[in-house]
């Protein structure tokens, strides 16, 4: 008997939850805000679904009801990807250590 591929995906999912659990507990509390903005950015990897949807039209009609939703989703996810990573970068650049020579 063969195992349904769904079971493999479920295994990946469950194991990733555990990875997430341990990785996130090790995040220092002072970086919780960047954690939220970066998780925001990476969850926008949903854009891969949006791209498939956007390219689902055929050569005669690029726009059909399905691809339009795809294009909209691409824009929304892109806002998040660029916005999320850049704002995280901006925040992280501000976290500085005490300068030893500072008087």
């Amino acid at each position: 008997m063969e195992i349904d591929p769904f079971i493999f995906r479920l295994s990946i999912f469950i194991l990733s939850i555990f990875i997430g659990y341990y990785v996130v507990w090790s995040v220092t509390p002072s970086l919780h805000t960047p954690l939220m903005s970066v998780t925001n950015a990476i969850s926008s990897v949903i854009i891969v679904g949006a791209i498939i949807a956007g390219l689902s039209g055929n050569s005669e009609s690029v726009f059909n009801s399905s691809s339009v939703f795809g294009f909209l989703a691409i824009s929304l996810a892109a806002i998040n990807i660029f916005g999320g990573f850049l704002v995280t970068q901006r925040m992280l650049a501000m976290y500085k250590k005490k300068k030893k020579d500072k008087k």
């Binding site: 995906r9 999912f13 990733s16 939850i17 996130v24 507990w25 919780h32 949903i46 498939i52």
Partner: peptide, 29 residues
């Protein structure tokens, strides 16, 4: 969790992993 749900639909590992990470991260916070 929403991203993970879509990840299962699309059979996409990157989405499933990310969804699980973000889901547990938010739950811990």
């Amino acid at each position: 969790w929403a991203a993970a749900g879509i990840g299962f639909t699309l059979e996409n590992t990157a989405l499933i992993i990310t969804g699980a990470l973000v889901g547990s991260s938010g739950a811990i916070l």
